[in-house]
Amino acid sequence: MDFIFSFFIIGGIIVAALNGRIDIILDAAVSSAEGAVQRSINLIGIVSLWLGIARVAEKSGLIAILSKAIAPVFRRLFPSIPKDHPALGCILMNLSANMLGFGNAATPFGLKAMQELQTLNDTPDTASDAMCTFLAINTSSVTIVPATIIALRTSAGSKNPTEVVAAILFATTCSTLAAVIFDYIFRFFSRRKI
């Protein structure tokens, strides 16, 4: 993460300097910082709402029921998470919200899942295997209903806004498979030194 962070900032400044547009750097930095806070403020409501609902579901035992139901599939993907652990339920909720195209609902469950995974992590500053797998699947996101894309295509006057759904399904399946496979390979070769 440190490397990428420095790469973006240093690379950006060098390129801007070479292009003779060094004046935009300060502008970009300040407006991005403001945008980030704006975004976080908007997140407060959504995250509070969904974690409130998630807490109710957890207390009633609904998340435990879900975790148990998907345990057979998830045990292969996440061998380090104990059976019936609430992390599984949160991961399921996050991934299914993502699949259906509800980015807003997905984020709170994802954050909650990370919190649960962190309780299982014995090196709190370093990502655990389960976290890496979870984020690999999450960032490659299996999308079944690309609602936003369809809406934007419609508003741009497409004759057939949904014609890309099959293509998206194909590409997203490929990328998620690739994510799972690469994750497995890297996990295998990077046995953590503790």
Partner: peptide
């Protein structure tokens, strides 16, 4: 923001 707007 820096990376994008600089043209990198």
């Amino acid at each position: 923001g820096i990376f994008r707007q600089s043209g990198a």
